[in-house]
Amino acid sequence: MTTIVLHRLGQAVLVLWAAFTLSFLLVQMMPGDAVLIRFLDPNMGMTPEDIARIRAFYGSDQPVVQQYVFTAWSFLRGDFGYSVQSGVPVWDEIALNLPPTLTLAGLAVLVAGALAVVLAWAATLSPFGWLRHALGALPAVMISLPVFWIGIMLVQVVSFRLGWVSVIAPGPWERLVLPVLTLALPIAAPLARVLLSSIERIERQAFVTVARAKGLSRQATLWRHVLGNAALPVLAVGGLLLGELVAGAVVTETVFGMNGLGRLAERSVRTQDIAVLQAIVVISALGFVLVNLAVDLVSIVLDPRIRRTREALA
């Protein structure tokens, strides 16, 4: 068990380093830079000397290698530097924008999981063939829908037509309903699809027949024997879908005009605010790594077979 965790932690460090380095290189390749975007407005009346001084302050006049080493070293110490755009420490920006995004993403994951289970359950247990087929086809349709379109349609239908959720001056929870749904639907779809197909696969296994032959009802068999086995691939897919969640947060927060990490990411790309962008990339990568580590550990708990093979391999 400890060897597995150590092994995975090593991988996590590697992933973080790669995310940091690649994002650094990408940003370097972009034409122009944050200082120019922020200060090259003729109305500001800055002389080239002024701009050079600002550059020197942010360290962006240094050679790329030096900048890389310097930035990496500061990140290691937990110092993300200053935002060129707003002039405040990056940490402050993150501290302000992380909690709403975490709430949004956390709720979206819960809703997506619940939706996937309900959908898969209904599609499996429905007594009507046509309904089973329709529900079974739903995930494929849902996967094809773009996030921004879902958001706009939800606002149109649920708020404007039906008037169920107010968009003007909503309460703290009411405000979250539509964004959470918007973010949850595209994640629920692949989850439901994997869950459905693995339920179908597991139901054909001999041990399910044996369970039925013991006198268990179909429903009890599904709960006690099928779900535990079917959950394993879903869990793995769920961990990978976290990347989807980050991308989805960018669109969702923009569509609904909410504050959050996604919106901050969008702004920092637009303004080439390297320090902020890199901090977001590293934090997202950290989240991704941690969640997938958790997924692995949970799988080990759920599946006794992994315990042994992993130990044998380690």
């Binding site: 041990f207 044996v210 535990g228 086995n229 006794p304």
Partner: peptide
């Protein structure tokens, strides 16, 4: 081999 639930 396949007639017992592997996770219980």
């Amino acid at each position: 081999g396949s007639s017992l639930n592997p996770v219980r």
